[in-house]
Simulated assay, not measured.
Amino acid sequence: MNWIESEFAALRYYALNGTDHRTHDEQNAAIGGYVRWRNARAQPKTGFAATSPIRSWTSYPAEVA
């Protein structure tokens, strides 16, 4: 599972599950509130790119056909 999928799962769980928004504006406000809360507490993700096997590739083709 990609990291972005877990972010959307959390958004769905905290902002949308079990709700009955009467309008799209109410739903957008709930989503916006969660995104602002999450961004205020965000930490950089580390470790993934540093250990990726792609980082060990040192030669790339000069031309891609």
Rank of each mutant, 00 (worst) to 15 (best):
V35C: 04
E63V: 07
V64I: 14
A65G: 14
N39T: 09
S52H: 10
G47Y: 15
F8G: 00
S6Y: 09
E26H: 03
R36M: 06
M1Y: 04
G32E: 03
E7Q: 07
R41V: 05
N39D: 11
G18Q: 01
R12W: 11
E63T: 10
T23M: 04
L16E: 09
N17C: 14
E7Y: 11
A30R: 01
P53Q: 03
I54G: 00
S52N: 10
D20W: 08
H24C: 05
D20M: 02
R12C: 04
R38T: 02
S52I: 03
K45W: 13
Y13M: 09
R41Y: 12
M1W: 03
T51Y: 05
Y13I: 05
T23W: 08
T51V: 12
R38F: 14
N39S: 11
R41S: 08
A10W: 08
T51G: 14
N17Q: 12
A62I: 06
Y13R: 14
A42E: 05
V64G: 11
T19R: 15
T58H: 09
T51N: 12
G32K: 06
M1E: 03
A65D: 14
A29W: 01
A9M: 09
G32C: 08
H21V: 00
N17A: 13
W3K: 06
G18C: 04
A65K: 15
Q27M: 13
F48Y: 15
Q27L: 09
G32Q: 03
S59R: 15
G47M: 08
G18V: 02
I4H: 10
D25G: 08
S59D: 13
P53E: 04
R38P: 05
L11W: 00
E5M: 03
F8C: 02
R22L: 12
E26C: 05
N17G: 08
Y60K: 09
L11A: 03
I54A: 10
E5N: 02
T58C: 00
A50H: 14
W57F: 11
I54W: 14
R36E: 12
W3F: 08
P53G: 10
H21K: 05
P53K: 03
E63N: 11
P44Y: 13
L11N: 00
N39G: 04
S52A: 11
M1L: 03
E63F: 07
L11V: 05
Y34C: 07
Y13S: 12
G33I: 00
I4K: 05
I31S: 01
R36H: 09
L11C: 06
E7D: 01
A49V: 10
R55N: 11
V35K: 13
W57L: 14
R41D: 05
A10P: 02
E5C: 02
Y14C: 04
A49G: 02
A65P: 15
P53Y: 03
A62L: 13
